[in-house]
Amino acid sequence: MRVLVIARTVPDSRATIRVNASGGAIETTGVAMICDPFDELGVEQGVRLREGRPDVTEAVVMSAGPGPATPQDQALRAALAMGIDRGIYVHGDLVTPPARYDELLLARVLAAAIKAEEAKNGEFALILCGKAAIDTDAGELGPALGELLNRPSIGAATKIEIGADAKSLKATRRGDGVSEAIEASLPAVVSCEKGLAEPRFASLPNIMKAKKKPVEMVSAADLPGLAGIKATTKVVKLSPPAPRAPCKMLAGEPAQMASELVRLLRSEAKVI
């Protein structure tokens, strides 16, 4: 049984986001890049399976981004340091912003890369990724991969358990105010939600060892079945972040405050 984790490199959540000169992507120089924290949940889960089950023979991480000369990809390094065996780095314009902002396109490219890898080394029983990456916050990757690879997909999983026979899995996913128990056959794709597995902090020796783990470079443009593919959506522009508005202080009697607050949360902030 082999496990694949998808790990994307994204700007640190604390970073200041600036739009670059072209207006089509964000400025990455001087921005700390990290492995996406949701993808990291999948990495942790993958490592736990690799460590905990003798029948899991390999855990592979796949990342995508500009290249090809980017062995410094933070997501790959983080995943390898956490205990994943080896990496595959898919590179090219197709998987680099602004094209990268089209997550269905990313799914198509990665599906092609996964098929190519599986043709060589066999099927992945389980593919894990974050429920959404913190940069695009789209969350389309997992379900779309499931569709493109003709496998069941489970979104926002907070718990997964692989059956002893390695043929099925049971998962708990977070729905809207509900928690759903799902049973699926393997191979499957699972998108990971917080609570699944607290990611470990890699120790220094493991970070060092990770530098020596093999990383295969794959050019997105050369993948079979992708000839002529391009982004179908067009990024018109990114708008720089609005300066954070000062706190809006509500006035009046408590009852007025309460109704005004609920109104604002609903129609202005749109969070309830």
């Binding site: 997550e103 269905l104 916050d137 789209a138 969350g139 997992g142 779309a144 569709e147 996913r173």
Partner: peptide
Amino acid sequence: RDFAPRVAARLNATMAT
């Protein structure tokens, strides 16, 4: 979020979430 991307991929659609 859980099923729409599957529909989109199946219909070869473009998607925005």
